[in-house]
Amino acid sequence: MGKPPVQEVSIELISEVSLGAAPSDTYKAAYSGQLHFMNGTWYIKYVEQEEDGQTNATVKVKEDEIVVIRNGLVSMRQSYRPGVKTSGLYVSMAGEMSMDTLRLPFGYTICI
């Protein structure tokens, strides 16, 4: 049994960040990556290249959960599950920040 087939994909990430009552900020980024399906889970892998270095990112998409894993210039692991409070840690050159989420803050579409 070999490795699952990998498909090259274009990835567009749109993040909306809000702190308290302040207006939210929106960030957009585009990447090239790889998509494959294994053991009931979609895996999307891509590299975020910055001036100061790079971050390897993996997004695991299951029916009831999305997990974002980043290692490199930025490190984090955050799980998103509908109706479930999840906690994670975001580490960058600016320091550490804990994150709590209570809902899926985004939608996702996988087109093959």
Rank of each mutant, 00 (worst) to 15 (best):
G2S: 14
G2R: 09
K3H: 15
P4F: 03
P4M: 04
Q7I: 15
E12Y: 07
L13D: 13
I14C: 14
G20K: 04
A21R: 14
A21P: 14
A21G: 15
A29F: 01
A30T: 15
Y31V: 00
Q34D: 04
N39Y: 07
G40Y: 03
G40V: 04
G40N: 02
T41N: 01
Y43A: 03
I44A: 04
K45V: 11
E48T: 01
Q49W: 05
Q49D: 09
Q49H: 10
E51F: 13
G53A: 10
T55K: 08
N56P: 08
N56F: 10
V59I: 10
K62L: 12
K62M: 11
E63F: 03
E63D: 08
R70P: 10
N71T: 08
G72Y: 02
L73S: 07
L73I: 05
V74M: 09
V74W: 03
V74C: 05
R77E: 13
R77G: 06
Q78N: 00
Q78V: 02
S79P: 09
P82T: 15
G83F: 14
V84P: 04
K85Q: 14
T86D: 02
S87D: 02
G88K: 01
G88M: 08
S92D: 00
M93W: 09
M93A: 14
M93N: 10
E96P: 08
M99C: 05
M99Y: 03
R103M: 10
R103W: 09
L104A: 01
Y108I: 10
I110W: 00
I110F: 02
I112D: 02
I112P: 01
